[in-house]
Structure formats: C-alpha cells, structure tokens
Design a protein around this nucleic acid. Structure first.
Length: 423
RNA sequence: GGAGAGGUGUCCGAGCGGUUUAAGGAGCUGGUCUUGAAAACCAGUGACUCGAAAGAGCCGUGAGUUCGAAUCUCACCCUCUCCGCCA
C-alpha cells in the first residue's frame, strides 16, 4: 500500500508510476473520496467534541440538582447525527481502502522502463553452459526413465500439475531443501523458521496477494484460510502490527515451505515437468531492514540466493525486471534464471524483490531505534533461495549423462548418503 | 468438539455506566543525598492512529443499548485449566 499522503500531495508521481506499469486506476475518484472523507471527519469530530463536553457537564448538573432533560433531548439529537456521520465516514474509509489496496507499488527510479519480459535487462551471468555430445533429454523424461518422477500417478491420485517423487528423486528433493537451509543459516546468517502452510485473509492482504489475486490462491473449504503461495506470506506476517526494536534490524529469516498456487492465468504454459506445479517446495529468504539500507540488502540477498547455485555449479544469469513485468508489490526485482537445456534458455528459479514499505504499511510492521523515536515502517525484502522443484529439474538436465544416468552435484552427496550417481 | 476462567498502557495490576483527559506499583528519564553505586526521597514520563492545530479515536476484534460504555448486551478471535478425540 502506498502512503496516502503521497496520493494527496504528489498524485502526479503516482500517475507516472502507474503509467510505467501500464496500470489503469481511477485516481480522480480516489481524490474526490478523500476530500469527502476529510470534510465528514471535520464535522463529526466537532460534534463529538461537543458531546464530550456535555457528558462532563451532565453529572455535575445532576449533582447540583439542576434539570437536565432539555440538554438530554438536545444530546439525543446530536448523538443520532453523529451516528449517521460516523456511518458515512466508515463507508468512505472502506471505499478508500479498497482503492488503496489495488494500487501497485511505485517502481524504483533505476528500474528499466518496459512493457514485457522482453524488456528486462540482464545484469550478469555465471557459469558455463554445458555443450552436450549427445542429445540431452528433458527432465521429465530423465525422471520418468529413472523411475524417480511420476507425473501420471500424481494425475491419477490428485490431478494435473502434481508430482510423485520416488526413491532417489524424493531424496534429492529433500537433500536440496536441507542443503539450502544449511547454507543460508550457516554461511549467510539467516535464522530458520518453519511456518504454517495456511494463513488467514489478513495475512494474504498484508503481503499483497489479496485482494487482487484471489483467483491465484487455493482457499481451504469451510474456513477463512488460504494455502500459502510462498513462505513469504507467513514469515513476513510474523511481525504484523508490531513495532520492532530497530537495533535488532536487519532481521533475516530463511524458511522452507511447500507452496500452493492455482495460477488461473497459466493454463497451457509449461505443461510438462516440474516447472509449473500447483504444489512445490521452496526455501525462501525474508529480510526486515531499515529503509536506508534496503537496496544494499536486496543486493546481498540476491547474492545469497545465487550462492547456492554456484555451489551446485548450475549456470545462471541475473535479470533486472522492467516496469511492465514487475510484480504488483515490488519496487525493484531481480530474477535469477538458471540454464535449462530442454527449454534451451534460462528459466526463473528465484525472484528477489525489494518492496520498500509497501508490505510493511499493509501489514503494519514498524521499528524504532530508540524508545523516543517515532515509529517508521521497515522495508521488506525477499527472494527464493531457491525453488526446489526447479532446482531438481535443472540438476537432472544439466548433470545428465549419455546413458540416462544423472551425476549428483558434489555438495549434495553428503545429503544423499554419499551416492554420486542416480541410474 | 464440550465445560470453565480470562484478555486493560513497556510490564504487573485497579477500575459502582458519568469531572477516568485509565488508580496504584514496577520500569524508564532527570534531580537530591553519596567518594562512587545501591537504597531512600522528589519531579517527570504512558504506546499508537488521523490532524498544521484545535480536536477526535484507541482498554482482544466487530456490532449494539445509552445523552454518555473499559464498565451493560450479542457475535467472533485469542490465551489458560479440565474433559473428549488424536499424529
């Protein structure tokens, strides 16, 4: 959510940002409503002030034996008016909030202006793309041939876009989760969190998944709970409606969770394999930082995410996302894309974003350095560190051998009972 | 799921429906005293939201009753105890 003061005082900045994002939102309606709200508020507060004064007088007058019935009559009318105005204020507030919740974040000035992912800007590359001296297979074929991935059985049991991992496939998934968590806790200084996989509506609003993208989420029947689309949601909301001790910042958490996405708009894309599933595992990095440092912190978080790919020796590139492709909540975003031979291109395996105070304002997360300071909103930053299913796909494809076997990356062997090859 | 108890300011903890703009502690800040500290004493300090200010709001959340609600009513949420069920 944007600062309402920004909308009042610098509406053109917001218009420009929406323009860059190719978003069309009626800001004039907002301005009008806000004007109306302030007028109402002024009126009702004056009346309340009068009411409060009378409330103090009445007991005094009664004590003195004076007749208060006339005053009571007057106050009755006043009370009715106040109730009516209060209702109007509430109504206006609700409408304003509705609009506020649908206005996306303002892109950072350094974000390249563009319309689609075509306009994203590559920042750096790491690793050598492997040249195969045999025709490489796609990971879904490798996985099925080795008997470690089973899409058909998952379709029978649940439906499309689910997977059974079996044997060493399941073990590889688990190994990666542990490897990621261990690396980020032991080398990169994150504190591990294991969150709930369901959250209530307010948490989803807090991080920006709702109210705009409800069709992308799985709702749990008969409850107000949603399956989390990412650990970002529960972990960020850990501190909702809280004023943090600024001396504890930055707070850095790493969390494993399963993620659940309905992704209404993605039918027909990436239909085969592990790339786009309704349920997948992810290790997520989340930081709460002071505003002054948030862009440095985004850089270091991105490096932390990259570090696990380097340890796995998977070639990747980092891309800076342009304004038209930027997520609703982000002010700046890097995607880390890993080389996927079956796609013959780089495929996203991590998104690292700085939300500035956009989520913090929605979720009410503030901090104070000193008890006497005014509370300020923190900046939140997060990124995948990294998506586990896509990492499996990437390993299977990049580490495949001519005979159909797959070599285990060295750093994972300790997690795999010292197995060095799946055949 | 059933029964009971409870949710008040940073913490503990009062609060007959009306000068409560929340008592009293603790804590914190400053001072007196002291070689210094502690103790004692004195003074100050109450989050947060909107607002330029005046002012308004805020006692788990939301509705309601009333001229007036922390205080009454209803619903919901959460915590604790006991019972049932259970990985």
């Amino acid at each position: 959510m944007l600062d309402i003061k920004l909308l009042r005082n610098d509406i053109n900045k917001v218009r420009a940002a929406l323009e860059k994002r190719k978003e069309n939102i009626d800001l004039d309606a907002f301005i009008k409503l806000d004007e109306k709200r302030r007028q109402l508020l002024y009126k009702v507060e004056q009346l309340k002030s009068e009411q409060n004064a009378a409330s103090k007088q009445i007991p005094v007058m009664k004590k003195e034996g004076k007749d208060v019935s006339e005053l009571l009559d007057k106050m009755k009318k006043l009370s009715d008016t106040i109730k009516e105005l209060d209702a109007q204020v509430r109504e206006t507030d609700d409408e304003l909030e509705k609009i506020m919740l649908t206005i996306p974040n303002i892109p950072h000035e350094s974000v390249p202006v563009g319309e689609t992912e075509e306009d994203n800007v590559e920042v750096r590359r790491w690793g050598e793309i492997r040249k195969f001296d045999f025709p490489p297979k796609a990971h879904w074929d490798i996985g099925e041939d080795l008997g470690i991935l089973d899409f058909a059985t998952a379709a029978k049991v649940t439906g499309a876009r689910f997977t059974f991992y079996k044997g060493l496939g399941a073990r590889l998934e688990r190994a990666l989760i542990n490897f990621f968590l261990d690396t980020h806790t032991q080398k990169n200084g994150y504190t591990e969190v294991f969150p709930p996989f369901m959250v209530h509506r307010n948490s989803m609003i807090g991080t920006g998944q709702l109210p705009k993208f409800e069709e992308d989420a799985f709702k749990v029947y008969n409850t107000d709970y949603f399956l989390i689309p990412t650990a970002e949601v529960p972990v960020t909301n850990m501190y909702r409606e809280q004023i943090l001790d600024g001396n504890l910042l930055p707070i850095k958490h790493v969390a494993y969770s399963a993620c659940f996405r309905a992704e209404a708009g993605s039918a027909g894309r990436d239909t085969r394999g592990l790339i786009r599933q309704h349920q997948f595992n992810k290790v997520e990095l989340v930081k709460f930082v002071e505003p002054e440092t948030s862009y440095e912190e985004l850089e270091s978080l991105t490096r932390d995410a990259e570090s696990v790919l380097q340890l796995l020796k998977l070639p990747y590139r980092v891309v800076k996302i342009c304004t038209g492709d930027l997520g609703f909540t982000a002010a700046m975003k890097y995607d880390i894309e890993v080389w996927m031979p079956s796609y013959n291109r780089y495929v996203e395996i991590s998104s690292c974003s700085n939300f500035e105070d956009f989520q913090a304002r929605r979720a009410g997360i503030k901090y104070k350095k000193n008890p006497k300071d005014k509370a300020r909103y923190v900046h939140t930053i997060n990124g995948s560190g990294v998506a586990v299913g896509r990492a499996v796909a990437c390993i299977l494809e990049n580490y495949q051998n001519a005979d159909g076997s797959v070599t285990i990356p060295e750093v994972l062997r300790g997690y795999m009972g010292n197995i060095d090859i799946i055949r």
